[in-house]
Nucleic acid binder design. Structure first.
Length: 561
DNA sequence: GAGTTTGAAACT
DNA sequence: CAGTTTCAAACTC
């Protein structure tokens, strides 16, 4: 196929004069930028096509035209490592010199989406000036990094370069064409904040920001510099349409890259432990939702571009398969998890610190508890008030209570309850309610409460006692008070307690895990000790066991399959 | 350093 | 807008 652009005649190469934005509008000291217009964006044609601009040179602090948007980074002027950084924009002082260059005014779509002016992107671009190697683009297309950065080629290895001062006309034309095609072509691709998030867990610097357009990687897993997000040291975002993305927070692969300890041995060693864990784990965490996934290719392993990726994919497939077969409850409890499974299992690699503790059964138990308590409470209140038709009530609540009780019974059966008799009695009573519309005896209710409280807090938990008192009080009320409010309070209090426990447990596990990994960072003989899933469980479990927190320990003991 | 892979840009 | 081609950087050997 013929080149899309005929190569121009031989042009002097390597004209290394840089753009001089400090001489903007030298011949017209009155030039001033029009005030920023909210809409529509600038035409972004070369300035030569803009209406006459005015530059207020007398207002201290006011930015010259190129910096009309305070929060906006002008790629022409600011790009770490770029060849040209205008002091005018970095230090908004009146411009005394006017330019001979005509450059596009780039207006951000959203001020907040753009990097702050004069705020350096964290490693989003190389510190050292890049030298392009263009051969066919004359350095007048965005293929050329120099051109895309808005700078002249300087010391590059390009061929037939037109991105220089001697070809300014052609260059400006190219700028115009490029901007016409994409008004944001010269905007920074990475919307970044000045903050840098130091992920202590992964010991990796991470820029808070995202790619404006998002990447579209298919084979690199977004873990190679082919990926613009990875190259900019940012996580893929919802803007991305990548496939099999591994560039998300908590990604094992990504973490391994930052740890530089990622190798096949680690993967294979970690497989068994991970599979074992996943069997009883609901600690998956979804990150960004990938737009597309090559499901077929993923599961056939075709996506793996290299051996590492292949191994990883197999590992992930295996763990995912095992997890899927271990429990289908996850589909019920976390709807997004379905998407994760369908769209790409790699997203499920992140393992929550609660993975060992919070399991689908726990959630189901809790839900069952809520349902039962809610209906029992409602029933008790309603009966006390005598305002609800008994038959209607039976019809409405019978099935659901029975279902809840049955569910509870099933979950109890599955986990070998500590006090089987108590639980069975409680569940039987619940079934009785459903079947015979008979209220629970206070004794049974107490048992239920006690048993359910034990599920999450343990017998000695003060929370459990308070909760029990509360529910008892609720059940003993005459129903004339705010029944629904009490019902709600009951449930919410319980939920809050559970969440608090989980937070505490998670904090403890997290602390233990990372403190333990700090102690063994140099153990290259067992790399998994730091990054491996199996070691995480081991370390954190041991740590947890050392904490004298009854409820925490109880949780772990009670819900271990 | 040559060849290959990759994904953005350009084009249809 | 989707598919294809071009391009140059990233990567591999």
């Amino acid at each position: 196929m013929e080149p899309r652009e005929t190569m121009s005649d031989s042009v002097p190469r390597k004209l290394v004069r840089q753009l001089d934005f400090t001489v903007v509008y030298r011949d017209n000291p009155h030039l001033k930028l029009p005030p920023p217009s909210p809409s529509p964006p600038h035409s972004l044609l070369p300035l030569s096509s803009h209406p006459p601009l005015q530059l207020n040179l007398q207002t201290p602090g006011q930015r010259p035209w190129l910096c009309s948007e305070p929060q906006e980074q002008q790629p022409w002027l600011h790009s770490p490592g770029s060849k040209l950084v205008s002091p005018v924009c970095q230090f908004p002082q009146p411009v005394q010199k006017l330019p001979v260059k005509v450059l596009p005014v780039v207006k951000s779509e959203s001020p907040t989406s753009q990097p702050r002016f004069n705020v350096e992107l964290k490693d989003t671009t190389p510190k050292k000036q890049k030298q392009c190697n263009c051969k066919n683009s004359r350095c007048l297309k965005l293929y050329c990094e120099c051109f895309a950065a808005g700078i002249y080629c300087d010391g590059c290895n390009c061929v037939n370069c037109h991105n220089n001062v001697d070809n300014e006309a052609a260059r400006q034309e190219a700028v115009g064409i490029t901007l016409e095609r994409n008004p944001n072509a010269f905007r920074p691709k990475i919307a970044s904040s000045p903050q840098e998030q130091r992920n202590s867990k992964e010991s990796e610097a991470q820029v808070i920001g995202k790619h404006n357009k998002g990447c579209h990687c298919k084979k690199s897993g977004c873990l190679k510099k082919y990926c613009e997000c990875f190259q900019a040291n940012i996580l893929c975002s919802e803007n991305c349409k990548c496939m099999d993305c591994k560039n998300f927070e908590g990604s094992t692969e990504r973490r391994a890259i930052f740890h530089r300890e990622y190798n096949l041995v680690h993967i294979e060693q970690g497989t068994n432990a991970a599979v074992t864990e996943v069997l009883g784990s609901s600690g998956y965490r979804n990150h960004i939702t990938p737009k597309r996934r090559k499901i077929q290719e993923t599961f056939s392993g075709k996506l793996a571009a290299d051996q590492t990726a292949n191994t990883t994919a197999q590992y992930l497939q295996e763990t995912d398969r095992m997890a899927s077969s271990s429990s289908n409850l996850s589909y019920s409890f976390v709807s997004d998890h379905v998407n994760t499974r369908i769209s790409g299992f790699s997203r499920s690699m992140y393992r929550s610190v609660l993975a060992d503790v919070l399991q689908p059964q726990n959630v189901k138990n809790l839900c069952s508890l809520f349902v039962i308590l809610s209906r029992v409470s409602a029933k008790t209140d309603a009966e006390a008030e005598g305002k609800i038709d008994r038959q209607t009530k039976a019809g409405n609540s019978k099935a659901s209570v029975a279902s809840s009780a049955k569910s509870l019974q099933q979950t109890k059966d599955g986990r070998q309850p500590v006090c089987v008799d108590h639980v069975n009695k409680a569940v039987a009573d619940a079934v009785d309610i459903a079947n015979y519309n008979r209220p629970l005896s206070p004794e049974t209710l107490a048992l239920m409460c006690d048993e359910q409280a034990n599920m999450f807090f343990g017998n000695t938990s003060a929370d459990g006692a308070a909760y029990q008192n509360m529910i008892q009080k609720s059940l003993n009320s005459d129903g004339s008070s705010d029944a629904y409010g009490e019902q709600e309070r009951l449930i919410m209090t319980k939920l809050l307690d559970v969440l608090r426990e989980l937070v505490t447990l998670g904090s403890i596990k997290e602390t233990c895990y990372y403190s333990s990994t700090k102690k063994e960072p140099a153990d290259h003989g067992n790399i998994g000790a730091e990054t491996g899933v199996g070691s995480e469980k081991r370390n954190s479990s041991n740590c947890i066991a050392n904490y004298p927190i009854p409820s925490v320990t109880k949780i772990s003991q009670t819900f271990m399959p």
